[in-house]
Design a binder for these strands. Structure first.
Lengths: 245, 245
DNA sequence: CGGTCCTTTGACACAGGTCAAGTAATGTGG
DNA sequence: CCACATTACTTGACCTGTGTCAAAGGACCG
């Protein structure tokens, strides 16, 4: 069995790199043609599979940026730290998402697995070499980068100008949408991360996140099933809150 | 005189697209070869020059994303609005920067000139066509996008976790660095934007920006020469504040 | 069960927002 | 070039949303 087939067998194929994603509509950029079999083979040749347990670090900010990763299964958080320990989570990644892409010598953020995670790992040097020859691949990367940039702009609006209530509502809806795109249950939303990760993503404290969620519950907008599941009761109202109306 | 030469004559050539920038070290990505003359000619053929006066809108959020722009001279601000008018400025652009690049049908933010500005305007459709044939160009765009992404992450850390004092210090230093990269005076820094733009960029109010600046002045860290010039007196101390020490 | 960790809840403090006034810069028409 | 209007910036007094500190549940696990 070739390396290529083995990779597919192991369900660790970098699908999202080689073709538009079936379930994640956002990334289904019609302009991007999928790679053909030969091209995929070349890509898989420079790839290896990496697994990470929850809480395991994938890489740290400031470390030499030797690899680029593509999430295949699981969930990852990206974050930056200030010297005194204050933390900002800059993103939660799901299957199909990319991390480590940079034109710097070192990583600009740290990455850590949230759940049992499987990643496709590429040597950055080799991948950059391959990019020269596979423009389709570069197109996909550019498409992904510009989507991430748009998401980053939304997050700046959230962090700079939204109230705690609006941030939490936005967050719940965002998770629900992401779940739907990944073919998972969208309504009782599953929160794979703890309160302090949510807080560090939204620029709040755990206490404020907790209080805000209980207030949304009290007001009949959501229902909390355990700590990690939220049922959205009034989608319309939540969307209005999230949008800042 | 050819269109190509005319464009150079008029100092409206998209230099930053075709080759690493001389002054802006950040963008001098060794991996990116400059375009040759024939390639540049093709690029210039689908380009036109656009001028914008201060406060003039270049495009608005939600508008069909028909063009992509490259700033040649001047300065531009990008921003997003909430329905009630709250505003978040997501970036200030200087010569060499890009705007309008998206894989969406519509612009994700509004763009407005801060100063008299000259831009290179490309039809997005045509540029995307050209990208298929000029992989070097796509490489440059990918490099720029990944730099912007890193800047966006820094800004998220600032907005989510830094105090007003730290935000203002970071901002001044950022402007000073940008000026230096563009071959302009770095120490009495020139602020091309007003207080309310600064506030909307830092997620603060004009009052807080103003108070914070006077406090930095009182403490002997900066000197305010008029409203639009700031002399950095204790760079080291400012850098420590900005970094969150 | 008895720890450990995470979440929730409460009481209180404070950074930064809001409202309001005053002052300086900029522009405009005569 | 000056009066005047307008806009931008600063400063002050006060208020509030969110952070801080502390403690009390809950969930999970050996």
């Amino acid at each position: 069995m070739s390396r290529f087939d083995a990779a597919i067998q192991a369900n660790a194929h970098p699908w999202h790199l080689v073709r538009p994603c079936d379930t994640c509509k956002v990334r289904d950029l019609s302009a991007c043609a999928p790679l053909d079999a030969a091209e995929q083979r070349r890509l898989v040749a420079i790839m290896r599979t990496v697994d990470a347990a929850p809480r395991q670090s994938i890489f740290d900010e400031g470390e030499p940026a030797e690899n680029v990763y593509n999430v295949t299964e699981g969930a990852v958080k990206l974050y930056k730290l200030l010297p005194d320990g204050r933390r900002q989570i800059t993103g939660f990644l799901l299957p199909g998402d990319f991390l480590g892409l940079t034109h710097n010598e070192v990583y600009a953020y740290s990455a850590e697995a949230l759940a049992p995670t499987r990643l496709c790992c590429f040597s950055r040097r080799k991948l950059e070499g391959l990019l020269e020859e596979l423009p389709k691949l570069e197109q996909r990367l550019l498409g992904m980068a510009s989507h991430e940039l748009a998401a980053a702009h939304d997050q700046m609006l959230l962090l700079g100008r939204k109230s705690a209530r609006e941030r939490v509502a936005s967050f719940i809806l965002m998770l629900s949408d992401a779940a739907a795109r990944h073919g998972q249950r969208a309504n009782p939303v599953f929160l794979p991360m703890g309160r302090s990760d949510i807080a560090d993503y939204l620029g709040l404290t755990t206490e404020t996140v907790s209080r805000t969620l209980t207030r949304l519950k009290t007001q009949g907008l959501v229902e909390l099933g355990g700590e990690k599941h939220i049922r959205l009761l009034k989608l319309e109202a939540l969307a209005e809150i999230a949008g800042g109306f």
